[in-house]
């Protein structure tokens, strides 16, 4: 790793400068993660200290993968993340392509499209929860007219659709900004050359623009999956609370509930460890992408 050619020399100063960051990292990141690892291989003792915690190897993990609720939550998380990612990226790409055509109105549209990013996931959840409210929401009212009886309190699919829309809504801004930046960096000459060769608009988009956007698309995919898996806790917790009957219990919500509500620390710790594994894989993928982008 590089430094400057010429550096300052001091025996203690660099350590003093790094100290605050490193101490906070050790206390609040490394140590708790180590604790999670440790708790994940123990069965917890009882509350009165009669039965001490016992070392059980991988029993907590085995129990998880035998547990239908956990397997179901894995499936729910998968559907939720893929749904959120596709919806928000698709809509954002459409907006970015349209805004990129504009010259005078580009900044106005951009302003209207970026601010949802400022809204906290929990608030985004509450907003859509209100719109989808079965008794007074506007969307169930419209759906009722076409004969669909919307009720996210009873119907798991309805609840899933609602949390996906709420989570995707907020993320559109983010994806939009990256797609727009990507589109603006594509040389106009390439598109004009294709037009001279007689390629129609749709063909130009799918054969030139979209392939050139693929690095950004890939990057956004990873970022969106990370967002859907970890940052959407607020959407779920403030609205459906994982229900109805577990239909929206994503992994992060389950870790929270098993740890803080059901007080099952062993299982919660094992789930934490699995989630850490997932984040590490996603982060590594993301960084490999960055290296590639820097190199070409």
């Amino acid at each position: 790793m590089q430094t400057k050619r010429m550096t300052f020399s001091s025996k203690w100063l660099p350590y003093a400068l790094l100290a605050p960051q490193v101490i906070i990292t050790l206390i609040f990141f490394i140590w708790p993660s180590f604790q999670a690892l440790r708790q994940s291989v123990y069965r917890q003792g009882d509350a009165f200290g009669i039965r001490p915690p016992t070392f059980v190897w991988f029993e907590n993990f085995q129990a998880l993968f035998r547990d239908d609720l956990y397997l179901n939550s894995l499936k729910t998380t998968f559907i939720f993340s893929v749904g959120t990612t596709i919806l928000s990226m698709g809509v954002a790409l459409l907006f970015a392509v349209m805004v990129n055509r504009m010259i005078r109105s580009r900044d106005t549209y951009t302003t209207f499209l970026v601010w949802p990013y400022a809204i906290a996931p929990a608030i985004a959840g509450v907003l859509w929860w209100f719109i989808f409210n079965p008794t007074l929401g506007i969307l169930p009212y419209i759906l009722d007219m076409v004969g669909y009886d919307w009720n996210h309190r009873r119907n798991g699919n309805d609840a899933m659709i609602m949390v996906i829309i709420a989570s995707a809504w907020r993320q559109i801004s983010y994806n939009f900004l990256f797609f727009l930046a990507g589109l603006q960096s594509i040389p106009q000459s390439l598109i004009e050359a294709a037009a001279i060769d007689g390629a129609k608009r749709m063909k130009r988009f799918w054969t030139i623009v979209f392939p050139l956007l693929s690095p950004i698309t890939f990057f956004l995919m990873v970022v969106n999956i990370v967002y859907a898996m970890f940052d959407t806790f607020g959407v779920i917790h403030a609205t459906t609370e994982g229900g109805p009957s577990q239909a929206t219990t994503i992994l992060v919500y389950k870790v929270y509930r098993d740890g803080f509500v059901n007080l099952n620390f062993g299982s919660s710790a094992a789930q934490s460890v699995i989630l850490m594994g997932i984040v590490i894989v996603l982060t590594v993928i993301q960084f490999r992408y960055i290296e590639r982008r820097v190199n070409y």
Binding site: M1, T3, K4, T7, F8, S9, S10, L13, P14, Y15, L18, Q21, V22, T25, L26, F29, I30, W31, P32, S33, Q35, A36, Q39, F230, D231, F233, V252, V255, Y256, G259, F260, F265, S268, A269, S272, L275, M276, V279, I280, T283
Partner: peptide, 28 residues
Amino acid sequence: YFRFPGRIFFFWIIFLTLMLPVEVRIVP
């Protein structure tokens, strides 16, 4: 701006925080 023993090590410690969002280790 400094070259000192353990530089890479500290860099990695800081880097690790990226992989441990608060949501995945809430209980501990």
